[in-house]
């Protein structure tokens, strides 16, 4: 396993695109969050909303770049045929898959932490001084939102890796992933039955997972923050399981 891990890490650092995608994730996340905080109107009473969630809004965009990275890790090998070289070097396919997942988790954790801390810092600089509590890592809910958002990005990466391993084609994989993330919430809005709508918000990977960012009005959430992140984790686990099983069963 450690050898496979070393190989995957070497693979990742010997091409340029993962680094650019990770830097892009940080830049996109911070930029969109900063943009969102700079347009909000704040008064002495506050900013009329959840400033933590607002500052972290960039993950809506950042997650797309994480998804590309995760998809390319596997579909890039399928499109070139290099997957056969990989599986010849490490015949235990579960080991290859786990090594890829661990490598991805590592790099997304680093980039995600940078992106999230950058967003919070940008929020603190842009928003007027809101007292000690807001956007401070010493505040429990804010810390949970920050930490949880990094976990969320990792889970989106793993979800994408699983989908891409099952689907193999990069364009189709990214379509499936972005569809799950972006389109399901939009479609849930057409459902006028509020119970159904709430249910969809509870089970969709993005809307449930991003509950982790909410620091105010927790009672109005369809799902509690950690349970929501758990739903996203469930999606990631299901995708990894499906991808892993198919990788083991199919001819390479």
């Amino acid at each position: 396993m450690s050898l496979a891990l070393h190989a995957e890490w070497t693979k990742m650092r010997t091409v340029a695109s993962p680094l650019w995608l990770l830097l892009g994730t940080v830049a996109a996340t911070v930029a969109l969050g900063a943009g969102a905080t700079s347009v909000v109107n704040c008064t002495a009473n506050g900013c009329g909303g959840d400033t933590t969630k607002l500052s972290l809004m960039g993950v809506y965009l950042g997650q797309a770049l994480v998804a590309i990275l995760a998809v390319l890790i596997i579909s890039g090998e399928y499109s070139s045929g290099m997957i056969r070289t990989t599986l010849t070097a490490v015949p235990r396919r579960a080991t290859v898959f786990a090594a890829k997942a661990v490598t991805l988790t590592g790099v997304v954790a680093v980039a995600g932490t940078a992106a999230v801390l950058g967003s919070v810092l940008a929020g603190r600089l842009i928003l007027p001084d809101l007292g000690d509590r807001a956007l401070s890592l010493s505040d429990g809910p804010t810390l949970r939102a920050v930490f949880g958002t990094v976990l969320y990005l990792i889970l989106i990466g793993l979800l994408s890796l699983g989908v891409a391993t099952a689907v193999r084609d990069s364009a189709t994989s990214i379509g499936v992933v972005l569809g799950l993330l972006y389109i399901v919430p939009i479609i849930s809005q057409t459902i006028s039955d509020p119970d159904w709508q709430r249910l969809l918000e509870k089970i969709a990977p993005m809307s449930a997972g991003l509950a982790i960012q909410v620091t105010t009005d927790l009672d109005s959430l369809p799902i509690s923050p950690w349970a929501g992140l758990g739903v996203t984790a469930g999606w990631a686990a299901a995708a990894l399981l499906a991808g892993g099983l198919l990788l083991r069963r199919r001819d390479a």
Partner: peptide, 19 residues
């Protein structure tokens, strides 16, 4: 032809060696 086209020959052999 089963190579990652933007990886160098040395990089390709290096990951194999590490595995």
């Amino acid at each position: 032809a089963a190579l990652h086209s933007s990886r160098s020959a040395r990089g390709h052999l290096l990951w194999l060696a590490h595995s």
